[in-house]
Structures are given as C-alpha cells and as structure tokens.
Design a protein around this nucleic acid. Structure first.
Length: 425
RNA sequence: GGAGGGGUGGCAGAGCGGUUGAAUGCACCGGUCUUGAAAACCGGCAUGCCGAGAGGCAUCCAGGGUUCGAAUCCCUGCCCCUCCGCCA
C-alpha cells in the first residue's frame, strides 16, 4: 500500500508516478471520497463524543443516587442517529480501502520508462552465449529419449502445463535445489525455512497478489479461504506480518525451497512447448527484511546472490532493469536475471529480484523498532528467485549438451549426483 | 472426532457493565547517585485518525447482538492450550 499520507497530501504527483507503471489513478474519485470521508468522520466522531459524555453523566448520576430517567430520555434518539452515520462512514471507508489496496507501488526514480519488456534496460551481462559446433537442441528434444521429461504423463495425471520428470533429469532437478540451498545458507547468510504451501487470504493481501490478481491463483474448494502459494514470497514474507522485529535481529534473510502453483490464466498459447511455463514448478526463494535505509543496498546484494548461482553453474546471463510498464504490482524496482537458452537462441527470465520498500510492510503491518526513535516503524521487504528450478534445469540441459545428445554435468553439481561428469540415463 | 480452558499494551499478567486506554511486574528511554557500571530512587513509555492547539474519536482476536453506556454480558467465526480417541 502507498503511504496514505502521501496520497492525501499530493495525489497529483502520485498519479504521475503511477502513470509510469501504466496505471491511471482517478484523482477526482479519490479526492471526492476523501472529502466525504473526512466530513462524515468528523460528524460521526462529534456525535460519539456527545454520546460518551452523556453516558458518563448517567453513570455519575446513578452513582449518586439521582433520578436518571430524564437523562435517558435525552439520549433516546442518539443511538439511531449514530448507527446511521457510522454505516455511511463505513461504506466510504470501505471504498477508500479497496481503492488503496488496488494501487500498485510507486516506481523508483531509477526505473526506466517504457511500456513492456522491450523497454527493459540491460544493466550488465555475464558470459557469452554458449557456442556450439553443431545445432543445439532444445530441452524437449534433448530429453525425448527415455521420456526423461514426460509431458504426456503430466497431461494424463493433471493436464497441460504439468510434467513428469524421470531418472537422471529428476535427479538433476533435485540436485539443483540442494545446491542452491547450500550456497545461500553457507555463503550468503540466509536461514533456511520450511513453510506451508497453502496460504490464506490475509497473506496474499499482504504481499500484493490479492485483491487484484485472484485469477492467477489456484484456490482450494474449502469453506476456508485457502490458496496454493504462487511463490514462497507469500508464506515467507508473511512471517513478519503483524510483527515488530527487534533492530538487532535485522536484517532477516530467509531462503526457502517450495513448489509454486500458478493458474497462468491469460497465457494461453504462450510458452506451450517444454518446461518453461508450468502450473507447478519449484523455486528457491530469497527473502529479506531490512531497515529502510538499507534496502537499496540489500537489493544489489540479493541480486548478486542470485547471480552467483548462475555463475557457479557457468550459465551465461544478463541483468535487466525492468521498465515501468513491466514492473510488478508491489515492486518499486526489479532486476530480472535472464539466462541464455541455446534451444530458443534467446535470453529467458530465470530470476526476478525486487525491492518493495514499505509497500508490503504497510499491508502486513510488519514493523521494526527503530533504535533512533524507539518507535515501531515499517520495515522494508525484498525478494528474489535464487533461482527458478525448472528453468535452471532447462538452462543446464541446453547449455551443457553434447553433439551426441548427452548432457555434461556442471562441475559444481557433480558431487550432488554421485560424481558423474556426464548425465547418466 | 469427543471433553474442557483460554485469546488484554514489546513481553508477562490484573481488570464489580459507568470517572479504565486499561493495575502491577519485566523490557525500553531520560534523570539522580557512582571514577565507571550494577543496584536503588524519580520521571517517561501502545497504535491509527481528526485538530494550529486544547482536545476529540477509535482500537483489549474478528464480526454481530444486548445496553443510555461493553475489555467486562450473549451469539458466531478464527486462533491457542490441556486431556481422550484416531492417524503419516
């Protein structure tokens, strides 16, 4: 949520900055709601003050044994009046909260202008696109033999955009998870977490998936409002919801491997081949909670942590600064890591690292105790994939393929799969 | 699944339906004392909104209800704890 004070004091400049994200704020609607709210609130509160005063009076009169009947008569119609105004106020407030909760975060100054991914800026790149003296295959063709990636089985069991992995590929997939968790816990100072994969409405509100993006989620048919987590960001970030974190515990750095479930509504026909876009995929997620003044440095560090995985795996990639139009709902700034996929002859997103500033924290009421003021203040949250497992698997298969169709195993992964230098079927 | 007990400030923990936004302790902040620290003592210490200020309003898990008035009474939901049963 955007700071309501900022929105109230300068809606025009908020609107201007939201426009960079392609969001049009109806300033007039907001201001008229705000004006109504203010009037109603003052009205209601003065009425309440009167009622409170009179009730107190009755209490005192009763205590001294006076006749309270005339006093009661006085307040007879106050209650109904009050109920009426309260109801009006509540309706306006509800409209205002709905509006506020559906406003995206303000983009940072350093976010480039632009409407879609074509306007993203290359910040830096690492490695050169892998060279082959033959025409490289994509991961689908590479794994056809032996049904190592069995898309038909996935379809049979669940439906399209699901897959069954077998044998060496399933093992490599698992090895990638272990490897990433090890690097982040041992070298980057993250605490490993295990979390629920089912999340409630409040949690999704907190990180910003709700109320606007319900259709991206799988909802369970239960009388409780349960959803499958679309990313570990949701369960992990919500750990600090309604919490006041002590300063000496900061920064909090969590790493968590979870499956992620996404309905991918609206992506029909997009990335239908292979494992690039699935309803269910694994991800190792990095999440940080930091004091506000540290969050920009933390974004650079966190992005670096994700990059380190690609470097250790020897996968060429580039870092993109997302333009306004491509920026997510909650993010103030996002770096995407794009890995080189020889099968597609293209860079594809494999990680997304964002600073949310206090946007999520305000929704979650996640605070820390600022030692300078002694007061609870909103903290800053960040997260990034470190990395998406399915896409990393694809990248390894495609970048490490040999002319005969076998797959070399990146040096650093060999100890995770029994020392094999070439993927054994 | 069955039977009970609970949800109050950062934490612990009081709180006859009226002057309780809430005793007390701990923690924290400031001060006195001390060479310094500890102890002791004094003072301060929830959040949001409105207001220039004085002050006002709201919040004691959430939502309804009773009442002139609810932290306190009633109903529903959520969560936690204890015991029994079942279970990976």
């Amino acid at each position: 949520m955007i700071d309501p004070r900022l929105l109230r004091s300068d809606p025009a400049s908020v609107a201007k900055r939201l426009q960079i994200k392609g969001y049009t704020l109806d300033v007039e609607l907001f201001e008229s709601l705000e004006t109504k709210r203010k009037a109603l609130q003052v009205d209601t509160e003065s009425l309440q003050a009167e009622r409170n005063a009179r009730s107190r009076h009755i209490g005192k009169a009763k205590a001294t044994g006076q006749d309270i009947k005339p006093l009661l008569k006085d307040v007879a119609d106050l209650g109904a009046q009050l109920d009426d105004r309260k109801q009006n106020l509540l309706e306006i407030q509800e409209q205002l909260t709905d509006l506020m909760m559906s406003l995206p975060n303000l983009p940072d100054e350093s976010v480039p202008e632009g409407g879609d991914e074509d306007d993203n800026q290359v910040v830096r790149s690492w490695g050169d696109p892998t060279a082959f003296d033959f025409t490289p295959l994509d991961h689908v063709d590479l794994t056809r033999e032996g049904g190592l990636m069995d898309f038909d089985a996935g379809v049979k069991i669940a439906g399209s955009r699901f897959v069954v992995l077998r044998g060496a590929v399933a093992r490599l997939h698992r090895a990638l998870i272990q490897f990433m968790l090890d690097v982040h816990t041992r070298e980057h100072g993250y605490q490993e977490l295990y979390v629920p994969y089912v999340v409630n409405r409040e949690s999704l509100m907190g990180t910003g998936q709700l109320p606007k993006f319900e259709s991206d989620l799988f909802k369970l048919t239960d009388e409780r409002e349960f959803y499958l987590a679309p990313t570990a960001e949701v369960p992990v970030t919500n750990i600090v919801r309604d919490c006041i974190v002590e300063a000496e515990q900061m920064p909090l750095r969590f790493v968590c491997h979870t499956p992620c479930f996404r309905s991918e509504a609206g992506s029909y026909g997009k990335d239908t081949r292979g494992m690039i876009r699935q309803h269910q995929f694994e991800k190792v997620e990095l999440v940080q909670m930091v004091p506000p003044e540290d969050s920009w440095a933390a974004l650079e560090a966190l992005t670096g942590h994700a990059e380190m995985i690609l470097q250790k795996l020897g996968l060429p990639y580039r870092v993109m600064n997302l333009c306004g139009g491509d920026l997510g709902f909650s993010a103030a700034k996002t770096y995407d890591l794009e890995v080189w996929l020889p099968g597609q002859q293209a860079f594809r997103e494999i990680s997304s690292c964002s600073n949310f500033l206090d946007f999520q924290a305000r929704r979650m009421q996640a605070r820390w105790r600022n030692p300078d003021t002694g007061k609870p203040e909103l903290l800053h949250t960040l997260n990034g994939s470190g990395l998406a497992i399915g896409r990393t698997l694809v990248a390894v298969l495609e970048n490490y393929q040999l002319a005969d169709g076998r797959i070399r195993v990146p040096q650093i992964l060999q100890s995770y799969i029994g020392g094999d230098a070439v993927l054994a079927p």
